[in-house]
Computed example of a mutant assay.
Amino acid sequence: MTSIPEPGLARFNASADNVALAALREVCAGRAWGGAVLAGRPYATVDDLLAAGDRATAGLTDTGLAEALAGHPPIGRPTPGDPVSAREQRGLAGASERLTAELAELNLAYEEKFGHVFLICATGMTGERMRDALEERLRHTPERERATARAELGRINRIRLSRLVTGTDTRAPTRAAAPGQAP
């Protein structure tokens, strides 16, 4: 039995390399990540595409991970005019000045400690939960935090890839624990 690709997946598979790569760079700023996913085309199913994205995320070098993380705005400061950034951080809509100030202070402490932006799959999270996660992760070692940030990047990439080819978040993963982290 032949699997018929979903319309968005068929368009993605048939797109010129430069067009598909530009779309992938909207999913993840890491060049190596986009190149790895692009190289696997054509994908028979959305699940195959998501699995390729997972492999590409897992395969990022420290430099590639840093590049991917640099493409994300800090929690509490979505990129102005970017609907994706605003949608992903909508749990902060209407946040109090106190919460906004706490997040700014915690983000700064995080960036000073780890050298990159705090990354969390914020979809569906409240501002308070994001703050609590930031406080908890500030206690991580650099190695543990790198693994946690990679896992969060993978969650974000899955949601964005799914939205790219289906227009929905129905294939978003459940929040599983990162290596060495309690669920």
Rank of each mutant, 00 (worst) to 15 (best):
S3T: 15
E6I: 07
L9N: 03
A10V: 03
F12W: 05
F12I: 06
A16T: 12
A16S: 14
N18F: 12
L21Q: 13
A23H: 13
E26Y: 00
E26K: 13
V27Q: 05
G30M: 07
G30D: 01
G34M: 01
A36L: 08
L38V: 06
A39L: 12
R41V: 07
R41G: 07
P42M: 11
A44I: 05
A52C: 08
G59T: 11
G59P: 01
T63F: 10
E67R: 06
A70S: 13
H72K: 06
H72C: 04
I75T: 11
G76L: 05
A86V: 13
E88S: 10
R90H: 14
L92D: 03
A93H: 12
A101P: 03
L103A: 01
E105I: 08
E105M: 05
L106F: 05
L108D: 15
A109Y: 01
E112L: 15
G115L: 05
H116V: 02
V117R: 09
C121T: 01
A122K: 03
R129C: 00
M130P: 09
M130T: 12
R131F: 10
E136A: 15
E136N: 13
R137E: 04
R137M: 03
L138V: 09
E143P: 06
E143T: 11
E145P: 00
R146F: 05
A147Y: 01
A147E: 13
E152Y: 06
G154S: 10
I159K: 00
R160D: 06
L164E: 08
G167N: 12
G167P: 13
D169P: 09
T170G: 14
A172V: 07
A172C: 09
P173F: 10
G180A: 09
Q181Y: 07
A182T: 15
P183G: 10
P183H: 10
